[in-house]
Design a protein around this nucleic acid. Structure first.
Lengths: 138, 138
DNA sequence: AGGATAATGCAACAATATTGCAAATGAAAA
DNA sequence: TTTTCATTTGCAATATTGTTGCATTATCCT
């Protein structure tokens, strides 16, 4: 497991540090849940806040995690599929945001979305955010 | 025009004040564009920041504008269709977010999105965010 | 016009996020 | 193994975004 973590970092061109390994482990433990800054700080109490910001930014740039838009005030991040790299993100899956507990998870099943954009507009990616109540909130 | 603005406020159960009329005029002038706080402050330089926050919150509660989630740090808002009221929002349209200039607009054409959620999850609403480049950014 | 009620503007504060820089660390070369 | 050097970290300072309390002012109903 430890090997898997540090190998994953190296595979994405990143040095393996204590901070980075712990953040990455936390994301694996979250099991598809998207995590925001306050939650990561709670799970890693000794971690420096600023370093955490920079770690998340770096991870996002290198294709380890992706930003999840769910309307909350703090930015949330979730693990990318293995296939993502620095130059090629494909996070075309939808996200579910629970209006009751605030939890956000990645949905596995691929979403199909068709939308017409005005002339001259070019679509690069679409994000589907599903709002509702999760299984724990009825 | 002035009548239309103040009538619209009254129709939604709001007192007609200078601040509210100016904010509402700004949204009409934006022509489907979603506006965030910094942009509104630039367009209404003499307006008080805090009052502006409260105005936006009130407008959103009364069904005049709706929050637009596009991933930016500051919350964006856009005009609701005429049909929205305090008790009944229907902003099922998609939003387009330009990755180059940051602009966000409401798309008229209704979007169709189907997604499967895990057992026990209940869907109340879906948001479709389309990322790409707008006509002015090629 | 007068009075009840709602909205505003200011101050203070809380939460989220970024930048600069010196010290510590990781990884590769000597 | 030790040296080397760019990268990463941690701290301080600061910027941005958003909220709350309260006295003053404005709106609108009668």
């Amino acid at each position: 497991m430890e090997h898997r973590i540090s190998d994953l970092l190296k595979k994405h061109g990143l040095r393996s540090t204590t901070m980075r390994e712990e953040v990455l482990r936390t994301f694996f433990a979250a099991n598809k849940r998207a995590l925001d800054h306050p939650e990561l700080e709670r799970r890693l109490p000794h971690a420096d806040r600023i370093t955490l910001y920079r770690t998340l930014k770096t991870f996002a740039e290198k294709g380890l995690i992706h930003e999840v838009v769910d309307g909350g005030l703090a930015t949330k991040y979730a693990l990318c599929p293995d296939s993502c790299t620095e130059h090629q993100h494909h996070d075309e899956h939808a996200h579910f945001h629970c209006q009751d507990c605030g939890k956000t998870i990645c949905l596995e099943a691929t979403a199909t979305a068709t939308v017409q954009v005005p002339t001259g507009f070019r679509v690069k990616q679409t994000h589907l955010v599903v709002e509702g109540s999760c299984d724990e909130c009825f």
